[in-house]
Design a protein around this nucleic acid. Structure first.
Lengths: 195, 195
DNA sequence: CCATATTCCTGCATACTGTGCAATATTTGC
DNA sequence: GCAAATATTGCACAGTATGCAGGAATATGG
């Protein structure tokens, strides 16, 4: 076994707390849920709850899947057209999100009504975007260009999830295709006669 | 006089509270400042502080300048190339921000370290972006395209402020020019061979 | 298998946040 | 001025979050 019993227990407890938080939040809104309730539902003391997460909003968000390192290196070492490599990169990330679709949906629900949770996720996404920008700089050799591209990418993920949450019978990856179409069209219009 | 004494007092008090909040936050970080201190510095009771703002993070952010209605209609009724009209739109908004540059700087400072504040601003920006998307839809007749464009615009504002805060001797509008250059370049690369 | 070191969980004390309510003070319109 | 409307304030109270210290569970080494 690669991880100790202690390690596994810790991860299990963290997940228990997150699930308990999300389920209670789904029932009556995160603001109406007390940390005491969450702790009880997760089978730990209030004090332990705060050993795992600094507040209930963080508990709801948990640790979202980061951009994978392989995907990032594939992107910056890719030799296809940029838009195609970027799309492949986003496809991979969306696929990772699909694994946890139910949690994504519950988290999205919390984000809609809770500002603090948005801020926490936003901080996470900013860090992700920054790291993607750095990697992209290796490929395109231009900081501002890389920043613009990685902004487009991160924005695309966000809008994809939003579209998916608000549509019936639309997979995450189908939603991405729609969003991506809009981005390509926007790029064309922006690039048109911009010399 | 267009506004009553009461109205003016209210606005003055709101501003007093915001300034007090930002100054105390600049000294020792918003997290280390209590609402009691802020209220005392602004010359009101703690209870009154909460009549004006729901929490200290909102007090720090205050009410950021929204996209102006004239600028929005100018944008969607414009007949120049899209990238040019969009740039003009952003120029106008950045000019508005320049009026309050010191406050923008202090707010930026808070945003860097406070997640809750980021979430609050994020909510505000989401609403702004959505309204811009609607207006743009009138011009480009395509929801996803409009959403992508308004995402680029809002992102540009954010990155402009960031660049400006981290550079010596760079005006907000000069920062926007640099960011904009990156966006145009990104659009070109994305549009290249995307048929 | 036991001893003990390490890590984790918990209860308790405490400071701060945010809201409802009722009393008090201020402004407004007449 | 005076009554109605609106703002401010103090107080009570529930919830959030952290430090600390003792006890429980797990890991390690013989």
């Amino acid at each position: 076994m690669t991880v100790s019993l202690r390690e596994r227990r810790k991860q299990q407890t963290a997940r228990d707390i997150q699930i308990a938080t999300l389920e209670l939040a789904a029932q009556k809104g995160l603001d109406q849920v007390t940390t005491e309730e969450i702790a009880a539902a997760a089978g730990v003391s209030t004090r332990t709850f705060f050993n795992y997460f600094v507040n209930k909003e963080s508990a709801a968000i948990g640790t979202p899947p980061p951009y994978s390192d392989e995907d990032k290196t594939a992107l910056c070492e890719g030799n296809g057209p940029l838009h195609q490599d970027l799309k492949a990169f986003l496809n991979a990330h969306i696929k990772a999100l699909t694994e946890d679709a139910p949690v994504v949906r519950l988290v999205g629900n919390v984000l809609r009504s809770n500002e603090k949770a948005r801020g926490i996720l936003d901080g996470f996404l900013m860090a992700e975007r920054e790291s993607l920008t750095e990697d992209l700089t290796a490929r395109v050799k231009n900081k501002q260009l890389a920043a613009a591209l990685s902004g487009m990418a991160t924005d695309a993920i966000g809008r994809t999830i939003f579209l998916w949450e608000h549509s019936e019978n639309l997979s995450l990856s189908a939603a991405l295709d729609i969003i991506w179409e809009g981005i390509l069209e926007a790029s064309k219009q922006m690039a048109a006669s911009s010399e």
